[in-house]
Design a protein around this nucleic acid. Sequence first.
DNA 1: CATTTTGTGTCAAACGCTTGACATAAAGAA
DNA 2: TTCTTTATGTCAAGCGTTTGACACAAAATG
Lengths: 327, 327
Amino acid sequence: MAAVTIKDVAKRAGVTVTTVSRVLNNRGYISEATREKVYRAMKELNYQPNEIARSLLRRRTNILGIILPTVAHPFFSELAFFIEYYAYEYGYKVMLCNSQLDQKKEKEYVEMLRANQVDGIIMASHTLEVDEYLSLKLPLVTFDRQIAPDVPFVSSDNYLGGTLATNLLIDRGCRKIAHICGNLRLNMLANQRNKAFVATAQARKVEYVTVETDLNVFDMRQYDTLVLRLLEEHPDVEGIFAGSDVIAASVIKICHQRKKRIPEDIKVVGYDDVSIASFLTPQLTTIRQPIEDMGRLAVELIHKQINKEAVTVENVLPVTLVERETT
Amino acid sequence: MAAVTIKDVAKRAGVTVTTVSRVLNNRGYISEATREKVYRAMKELNYQPNEIARSLLRRRTNILGIILPTVAHPFFSELAFFIEYYAYEYGYKVMLCNSQLDQKKEKEYVEMLRANQVDGIIMASHTLEVDEYLSLKLPLVTFDRQIAPDVPFVSSDNYLGGTLATNLLIDRGCRKIAHICGNLRLNMLANQRNKAFVATAQARKVEYVTVETDLNVFDMRQYDTLVLRLLEEHPDVEGIFAGSDVIAASVIKICHQRKKRIPEDIKVVGYDDVSIASFLTPQLTTIRQPIEDMGRLAVELIHKQINKEAVTVENVLPVTLVERETT
DNA sequence: CATTTTGTGTCAAACGCTTGACATAAAGAA
DNA sequence: TTCTTTATGTCAAGCGTTTGACACAAAATG
């Protein structure tokens, strides 16, 4: 109701709105005395400049959209945390969108974000046609997928991650290994992990098998049945390279139920190194993605684009093997 | 650059902006023919009404602020997911804020949200003075704390949760039990769990001990050392009631390291039943909070307040005991 | 003393949209 | 025929800011 505006402040301080606006935006000449008066009036009236009005005029909102499959998944929840963290440092607010990898929803979100004049969109979910993104004419950053030659993306070194994991399993003596990964039909850079898995297994002459999830890799409810099926169909696997730490958790659990000892009977390598990885029992060996760096970088790339600065398109961050107790 | 406005659409369709606005907002008389013309023009120009301009006029943004300690914590990540999910159903967008339980940050977020004219704020972090919230004069919903007699809050039945967990541990034969909980100095309804724990232990004449976390309960890095200390100082505890599933995960891990068998030597009950609870090994017995319902309810309460509808202030949802393998 | 710098004011346009007031005209109903 | 309903248009104000143009005066500088 209050709806105290710049006019009220001006009246209270006995100056004009122009003057108030000047102190607010630090332009033109302002004496300490009036500056004080204005600040006092703002305090007394509990005034906050209306960012909506400002945005309209400036044609800039300082809002970033972030679209991801689901923030309920540990990887994205940590990523979202860091994105928001650094966005805040840069002075941006964050609008959160969970697409659930649903095209219709994602499309609606994209349109909504445009209608709300966000300054840029960070996309960790990209189920639409490339054109739909490009026609936005908005600063964009994608995760784990390159949608166009000039749209920067951030990812980590998936191929190396796959190689590291596979080699480790083989080094530890596994003679048959499996890779549980996301759906390979989706055009994601994470598919490189499977490429590396296959290449490494072949090069080292080890039997291998690949299991893909549903289209929605991040629907955690499917993991148990998937793992169960793998173990039924391939009772002789000795090493499993999981597509994420959550999938690895499922593997550990199912193995435990079936009295397969980890790491004695089956060795497991996860992916991501989200914080639960080290809370599991036994603690999970995993490929660490630098989630914080990825989040920071994404924000930085959006920020630079917003300010018309040049950006590098390919941003592939290093991964590291974190060996704990499951190998 | 495009910045296609309602004027461009009007020109293209050969009508006035008033007419375009009418079809956009469904008011006044519009023939099918012009409606069509207008829609076609909008399509051709790839027009999206500028929500900022609309918001300014309507004095309503359809944006909800949500402040929580950190979306990186599984409980809040799931809660945030559901809040966003239902907010979207109601036509709201969500601005995400991670306060990290830092007063300064929370204060800045609150001011930011007000400046951005959000229609309401859902607060799962409330470290400020009550007045600071009330002076906002904004629809508010809090989680797990009542800040004023007329500010609705949603929580689950913490006392019952504490009772169920404690009784279960005792029923399973524990003769000394511990409760690891958040800092009791914080004015949170979750403290009821400890009340229940103490009352139940006393009533049933079982030895008990309470361990509090740092002020920031949701900083997961402290859990291991906390649990370790508990086990050192009280090597004879036979049952642990953890303040969250993540803390329980830490307990499981540390026990495993110290060769304490679960549930044979030590029994564990978690809290929340976030999805990782069932991914742990052994699967975690826990007190289930209805996170989805809590999220939905919070949105509903905000929505009603925005529309000046009456709301019930106390919204305490039921908890249930989910017994799995750690008891 | 003349000039420049500093401080403040007035005024009005603009951002993109909605909305009310009012006018006009054609089609249908009485 | 007259009245009402339907369909469209014109015009202008307003949402809360920012900003440029311009004016004026006091203080500082030369």
